[in-house]
Amino acid sequence: MVTPTPLEARLLEARTLEAELLEVAGSVPDPELPVLTLRELGVVRAVHVRGTDADAVEVELTPTYTGCPAIEAMSVDIERVLRAHGVREVTVRTVLAPAWSTDDISAEGRRKLREFGIAPPRTRSASGPVPVTLGATRTRAGTGGGTGTAAEPLEPVRCPHCGSGDTELLSRFSSTACKALRRCLACREPFDHFKEL
């Protein structure tokens, strides 16, 4: 066993502190979906300890959507919990790259969304633009019938209430930019779907 040099010891200490503070920052509930923590949503990227006494930190936060208005509330909340944890100076920096994806939502986060009545986003192996196809109209038969829906290359969106995969799209945009409005054809309940991004 090699005894760490004073510098190595300090670095190790800083890493441990960063991991601890990342836990604290990640424990903040999402302002719009309070059942989820920011860690489960996958938007807190990193915490860097700065300053000679390691009492100043910089937090890297990424928005779900570029125009997401919740990002300011998230920053304020993160700053508050870290200060309560004894950090003197907190800087929250917004980072765009790599772009956030719904694949960044943890398995636990998906479970909580479903429990909350929101169909979680389906996972994808590759990200990229959503495939675009056109649905049924007066003179064209569509596969989805009724209102006509966008192509769904993934598994069906399941109703968070009864679990049926027989659901239809009502609107691509719902109460927030990240959700679409759907209806279950089995239990007839409308529900929000956290759409894939």
Partner: peptide
């Protein structure tokens, strides 16, 4: 920015 916005613009 474009990597993020391209996904929004697809919708």
């Amino acid at each position: 920015l474009a990597a993020k916005a391209v996904k929004e613009t697809a919708y």
